[in-house]
Design a protein around this nucleic acid. Structure first.
Lengths: 212, 212
DNA sequence: CCAAAAAATGACCGTTAGTCAGTAAATAGA
DNA sequence: TCTATTTACTGACTAACGGTCATTTTTTGG
């Protein structure tokens, strides 16, 4: 009697449908403007049903954050695979993050939303936990490629792999965030194009990282 | 007949009183949890009156952002005054930003809120405009000390003062943001103390900046 | 076919940002 | 000092939204 298993699958399917509906609505109107009634209508369900699958609006959004984080981690893994040494892999991760920011701005927004959240790993919010683990995995990959760079000599000695990974993560998020919110003003008031600033960031960072 | 002038002063005074009340309430309960009724009660005014002085809750909060930005800019100016050369001044600005983050976490939060806002300099929001100008002034100071460092030889050639100022602003905000939201997890899951990461950031950055 | 369980519904609730018609206070002219 | 007018203030009210729950509909297993 595989009924229970089928029900499980159907439940998971419904959940995915809700996530897709939420994605459409939230990525169009933005998190604040999007209402749970909008999502319910898009999913062709009643609002009450949404709350059988997610315990709050935030939890729904965190499902999108998780999707984004998974996507990013996969992109990192793929980008790293082709590169010859540690430093190139670090660079590839950086470029991938920038590409992610450009190609999936909505997911990037979602990730920034998560970054703004104070982690509460004791909370009941399953999504938050999963997202944290996903980001931890991405960070592990990042750390390991820096270690590789130390071993193969492409990265200068006396950098700490774990701290550097965290540092570059924070730094690049900050720079992209600055550009995302103030990009237009950058062009008009500082004569700096967003693109230029990003290139400058890469140059600056790799100057500090490479051996010799 | 100085009546009009006195009224002007009194109006400004009321506005300041409202800002003080908002500060108490918002810094205690947080922006989301604080209600306009709370602020009104604290200011001993009716809610309607608040809306004669500010056009929205966000506008009230932006007044706090502006206060924070002014404070930060003053701290920068003071910190820079005592230093002997450009590189030291840059370092002093960095350390001041970190101190600001530690000593005025509520104002720092407010600044992050502003950083997350997409600038709209055409909007009617006077506060946003003022805040932007304040931050632009801080940035000018930052740019000028980097130029000073280039002239006095403490900072390596081929750094661009304007881009570097923007870059360091974005980078440091990102790192502090990471620590603010994920600091506890950093300690538990990555064996990195927030303090360490900040020191590492400073070291890493000045390695990339200094001459030779 | 039926009773029990599971899933879904949507009217309803509490809260809160923002409004506005009405009231109170201050001002200026006589 | 009295009064008309402008200015400042009030708080009941509205609209909107996140979240709940008693009720209904659908599915399941015998």
């Amino acid at each position: 009697m595989g009924t229970a298993e089928r029900r499980e699958r159907e439940k998971e399917y419904r959940k995915q449908m809700i996530i897709e509906a939420a994605e459409k609505v939230i990525f169009t109107k933005g998190y604040e403007k999007a209402t749970m009634d909008d999502v319910a209508a898009e999913a062709e369900l009643s609002k009450g049903t949404l709350y059988l699958y997610f315990k709050s609006k935030e939890e729904v959004y965190l499902a999108l954050v998780l999707k984004g984080m998974k996507l990013l981690r996969e992109m990192f893994a793929e980008a790293v695979a082709k590169e010859p040494n540690g430093l190139c892999k670090v660079r590839a991760i950086g470029e991938t993050y920038i590409r992610f920011n450009r190609e999936y701005p909505n997911y990037y927004h979602a990730l920034m939303f998560y970054q703004g959240l104070e982690v509460n790993l004791e909370s009941e919010a399953a999504m938050e936990l999963k997202t944290f683990h996903e980001s931890k995995d991405a960070m592990k990959l990042f750390t390991s490629v820096i270690e590789e760079g130390l071993k193969d000599g492409s990265i200068r000695k006396n950098v700490d792999s774990e701290k550097t990974a965290l540092l570059l993560w924070g730094e690049s998020s900050g720079v992209l965030q600055l550009i995302a919110s103030k990009g237009h003003a950058l062009t008009n008031h500082f004569n700096v194009e967003p693109e230029e600033l990003i290139n400058y960031f890469m140059e600056f960072t790799f100057h500090a990282l490479k051996a010799d």
